[in-house]
Design a protein around this nucleic acid. Structure first.
Lengths: 351, 351
DNA sequence: CCATAACTTGATACCGATATCATTTCTCGG
DNA sequence: CCGAGAAATGATATCGGTATCAAGTTATGG
């Protein structure tokens, strides 16, 4: 049979399926690989290979198929691919966002992180699934190839809960001793130490720390601060404040004043606190930085144009996000991954 | 054949598959519905029904299967379900986040929106896929059941680009006349008008508007402001500023001063601008609110503890996000949906 | 001129869920 | 004691891709 083309085998089967296919096509929805295959007179698998750049197909054929795909607006069905490949090409990011209540943690920070994460993951062909903690039990999260945990509220219990899912996981924050999971965070100890040196260098001998050291990250800042000052024989005063708001900062200063405490430098572990503290200092008739030096944390854009321009410890969120993303991706690829801390820098302005 | 149980039909087939199944099980991965079915001595479909609360299964059976599922840590395979159901149970949120450059748009706002969106969508069993504009062409986005566009930079061209995907879409921002898509935004005209009335009521007769009206939202604020004042026979001055930073605000005031302009009220279309303006006013030796009233926009947390406490137009981002989410869901369900604007309120503090 | 390798392409069997239609068992009135 | 209808369960096909192994075609060398 000279004229017998390869496609004729099992013709009966093929014919019996065609009508169904055509019926299916009426249901709007875009073309599938099978459709393209038929159009090109090839088989699904060849189309699949062509579209995924397999070296197994003839370059000419590939181009032809590509052209067809473009022309007919073909779109890959992700679900189908993920099902077959047994992975979701998705990383879930779990953000600590208490909806209505205390918005303090809210402000600028997760967004920078999120930007970095998003940029890096999409570049690698992964998607970012955003969830709050409440939604974290949703099915889609369990299906993720990896997990990124953001938010200072995240503690051991929460981390362990997700750890049990057995999914590659990276956490943003301060790494505690004995942690088994990968932690990425900025170097909070260094942050504290840098501020300590700055105060010491400017002749300040009675520094105060304002913040809530029960957050691991804040704890590290305090620690770095205390240790570095200790090396100079100085012991700072700790003002514990739970709220990271300007009012809380002002209040802290007033309370110092009321107690008759002598102080000449304030390290506030958030810019908002710092700005409030400055206000408090001014309200009690003393000057910044004349009488008291003040340094904040996070280097919010606003701080730069605060009056007086706020000195602050700067962290690069964007970079942190990218690092987080790269780590999960590495974990997913089964590469060895270590925790890492990012450097911080003190931005000295006028306070 | 009295002893013949129902499961014996097509026994040969069943037997030929079993060994494969068992081999597959060695590949780690959790149990599937088929596995549960075998364990329970039932069929896949019954398991499926039991887990999805179908009234077709015996309540006892359902509980038994549920128990098994829990015990064995069964997890639904989303990809498989999505493939079969032909939907992704996912809404893509496209955020305008210019990574490195002008971070001004960054600050608090998308996060509130995002929180509301996320809350509402996860509650409805949907996932939130987060992307920047760059990543928006990724396959996963095209697979989304719906689209939410955030970011003031999004304009017609961008919107149309996504519109062509033929996916239910909702846009945050200001609705232009003749828009065909659904727009949710806060009532910027009202915001402007409210401020106008406030100024007028306080006897201000020489108001200034600071901002960049080429953003549709800002344009609306200006418009509402101008119209409401016009009704009182007052014509405000427009100071066009592209940057929404405190420095830019201070600069605007200085420039007014240099030009010898007489003004007694400033409506800045961002809190940052407003704070800068206040600084500028104070620097030129005039007082707020004694000589000049100032109102900002967005009601950032910081503004409340700024000194003097900033009056500002408040929008509820969280609520906006929830509304956006509800609208896409409605679109997805093919329900009729209309654009909507959220009310805003003026929070009067001391400026 | 034939055997072997290199290149292309295809048939088939999955991945793990759900829709559809069939089948079995059970209940109940006549 | 039988047939109709309700209740519970099952067999099969299918969603749209990709892995595997087989097979056809063409080039290459002895």
């Amino acid at each position: 049979m000279p004229g017998m083309s390869p496609g004729c085998t099992r013709e009966g089967r093929a014919l019996s399926r065609k009508p169904k296919k055509q019926a299916g096509k009426l249901l709007s929805a875009g073309p599938t690989m099978a459709d393209l295959a038929e159009l090109a007179g090839l088989s699904k698998i060849t189309v699949s290979r062509a579209l995924s750049d397999s070296p197994l197909v003839n370059p000419e054929t590939r181009e032809r198929i590509r052209e067809l795909a473009r022309e007919h607006g073909y779109k890959l069905n992700i679900s189908a691919r993920n099902l077959r490949l047994r992975r979701s090409h998705t990383v879930a990011v779990i953000v600590e966002m208490k909806p209505s209540s205390d918005r303090t943690m809210f402000d600028p920070y997760p967004l920078g992180l999120l930007g970095g994460i998003s940029q890096e993951l999409t570049a690698a062909g992964y998607s970012v699934l955003l969830t709050t903690r409440q939604g974290a039990s949703a099915a889609a999260v369990q299906a993720a190839d990896g997990l990124i945990l953001l938010g200072q509220g995240v503690r051991q219990e929460a981390v362990h809960r997700f750890d049990k899912l057995g999914v590659p996981m990276v956490v943003w924050g301060a790494g505690l001793e004995g942690d088994t999971h990968v932690v990425v965070g900025s170097d909070n100890r260094l942050g504290g130490a840098v501020v300590a040196e700055y105060f010491f260098g400017r002749g300040r001998r009675h520094p105060v720390f304002i913040g809530n050291p029960s957050h691991p990250e804040i704890y590290d800042r305090l620690n770095g601060f205390v240790d570095a000052l200790g090396a100079h024989g100085i012991k700072p005063l700790l003002m514990r404040r739970d709220e990271f708001t300007p009012d809380s900062g002002a209040d802290a200063v007033h309370s110092l004043h009321a107690r008759g405490v002598d102080f000449d430098a304030i390290f506030a572990c958030s810019d908002l606190l710092a700005m409030g503290a400055i206000r408090g200092i001014q309200e009690m008739g003393r000057s910044v930085p004349g009488d008291v030096s003040v340094v904040g944390y996070d280097d919010m854009p606003l701080g730069a144009s605060f009056l007086p321009a706020l000195s602050s410890v700067h962290q690069d969120w964007q970079e942190g996000g990218m690092l987080l993303a790269r780590k999960v991706l590495a974990l997913i690829r089964d590469e060895p991954v270590e925790s890492e801390t990012l450097p911080v820098s003190l931005v000295v302005r006028s306070t």
